[in-house]
Amino acid sequence: MAAESPLHSLLADVRAHLRRRALERATRQAGWAICLVVLTVSAVHLLFAPIPPMIALALPALTASLLIVPALVRRPSDAACALFVDRELGGQSAYSTLLEARAGNRTSNESQAHLEQWVNSQCKESAQRLARLPQQPPLRAIATAVAVSITSLALFAVLPPDSPRILASTTPAAESPSGNRAPAPRTLDSALDPLTSATRSPAGNAGQRAPSPRTASATGIEDKASAQTDAAASARSRSRPSGGATPSSNEGAAGNAPGSAVDRRYDGATMRPSEMPVPRRAIDARPGSADTQSLMSRATTYDDRSAALAQPDAMLKAAPAAPPTDRSSATLSPAAQDYVKAWGSVTQ
C-alpha cells in the first residue's frame, strides 16, 4: 500500500484538477448558453407570443443546471486521470498501462514490477508538472460569460411584458370585408419602435431618453398604445439634431449649410441616424445657369460653390421646398432657432 501512495496521491490531485477544469468550462458554457436562451426567448416574446417571466427565468436556470450540475457531480475515473498524466504530465503511457496491468493481471510479474518502480519514481516529477500547470481559473473568460448572461437577462427585463399585443395595436386595424376589425398589419417601424426605445435607453442618451415602455405600462397606459407610440416617436425626433427634416423630407431643400449638413436619410426602422458629417453641395440652392453666367462676368475664375456660398439670398430664393414649420412643441437648439427665423424672414 505504501508503494501505491505516490500514485494514488497523484491521481487524486489530477482528479481535483480535472474537476476544477470541468467546472470552469461548464460555467463558461452556461454563461453563453444563458445568453443564447435569453435571446431566443426575447425574440419569441417580441415576435410571436408573450412569454411569462417565470418561464423566461426558468429556461436559463434549467440550462445552467444542465451544464453545471454534471460537472459538479461527475467524478473523473482513474483511467481518465491516468490518461491525463500520460498526455499532459510526461507519463509516457505508464500510468494507464499500470492501471490496465493491475486490472488484467495477466502480464509478467517482472514487467509489472519494473513498471510500478518506474511509475513511483516518476510520480514526483509528474506532480511537479501538475503544480506548474496554471491553477488560476480563467477569470476573465468566466466573468465575460457571466456578464453577458446577466446583461441579456437585464435586457429581457426591460422588454414590455406583452409586446405582441402592443405591437399589434400600434397600427390602425383594417376593416375586414365582413365588418370585423382584422388585426392590423404590423410595420417594421412600428414593431421595432418600443424595442429601439428600450435598447437605446441604456446606450447613454441620458438627456434624450424615451420613456421606458415598462414604466408606461406599469402606470396603466399600455392600452393607449398609439399615444405611447407617439411619445416614442417624439422622443426619437428629439433625439435627432435639429434640422427639422423628417426622414422623408428633402434635406437639401431644407437649406442646411453646404458642407455642414448631416445626412439624415435613414430608415428609421432599421438604422440609427448617422452622426458622420457628409460634405454636400447645395445643388438645389445654387444659382441657375443664367445666374452663373451673370456672375462669371465678375471674376476671371469662378467656383460655383463659393459663389453660391457668397450669395445666401440667391440660394434661399432658389430653394423650391417649403420652409420648415415652427413647431413650438419641439425643443430647438439656438442655431436651429436662428435658422428657422431666417427662413421665416426670407419667405415673408
Partner: peptide
C-alpha cells in the same frame, strides 16, 4: 517481448 502495451498504444 515482455514489454507492456496499453490499450491506448
Amino acid at each position: 517481448r515482455s514489454v507492456l502495451i496499453s490499450e491506448r498504444c
